[in-house]
Amino acid sequence: MNLFLQLLGSGLVVGAMYALFALGFAFVFAVTRVFHLAQAATYTLAAFVFYLVYVEAELHPVLAVLVAAATAICFGVLCELVVYRPLRHRSNGDQISTLVVALGVVIVVENAVGLLFGTQPRGYSSSDVTSSVRLLGISLTVPQVQIVVVAVLVLLLSLAFIRYTRPGREMAAVSDNPELAELIGVSVRRTYVWAFVAGSLVVAIAALMVGRNTGIYPTMGLNPVLVGAVAVIVAGNGRLLPVFGSAVVMGLLENLAVLRLPSSWQPTVLFGALVIVLLARPYGLFSSRERSFVQWSS
């Protein structure tokens, strides 16, 4: 029972981490249908810029956070303006082309960062990494608890952003029906840029939170971003609550599997479950056939 609770706790932490990546991915994918795997590069850049300003230059952490977030946003918008938009205009902007180009961007950034900083993992050491919190018989470190809190905060702020701000509402409109949105005077191009701003910001937050837990290295991005993408696909549509839910379910599943199987089998459990889910419900767990992305892609 104790083990179960402990696994539930660490599953929630991992799920919250996946949820941050999934939310960042969902902002871009739901609005623009760009399979923005280059968020792996955004993630690496944000983590290393924070490291550079905070640890190497020894400046104030708040300044480091702001600089890292600004870098991430600039990079995301740059991807849209320099890479994805020309691709769209050259009439070969199908989803596979954008996915391939995104992988190219990831390769470039990962290796450039590796060239500058080396491929050895680094960490931003802070005193509270080892201190733990006990709650209902679950023992977690302070940064782990922070990840959960931050993930929930990001979810709530994102929901508020989409509901109560003009760019957020325009994003929802474009996500739903770009032609109709254009007709009522929404600039689709500008909304795309907004989607990249929001998505990149969420990924920057993920970089700072996760980097404290696991350390940072140039190739750290692709796997969590792909898992985030998987969560968006499993949810089946770009609505934020289902996306968040799928990510948490994936984290829980991966950790609770340890009850029956050695932990080295976690990837098989996670990705095997994905295949089964998509076989049973190709349009996603929380989506109907009509509202799913699948209709879009096929």
């Binding site: 399979f35 998987v230 699948v294 892609s297 096929s298």
Partner: peptide, 8 residues
């Protein structure tokens, strides 16, 4: 079907 779903 096709596209990114197949990729995933």
């Amino acid at each position: 079907g096709v596209g990114v779903y197949l990729a995933i």
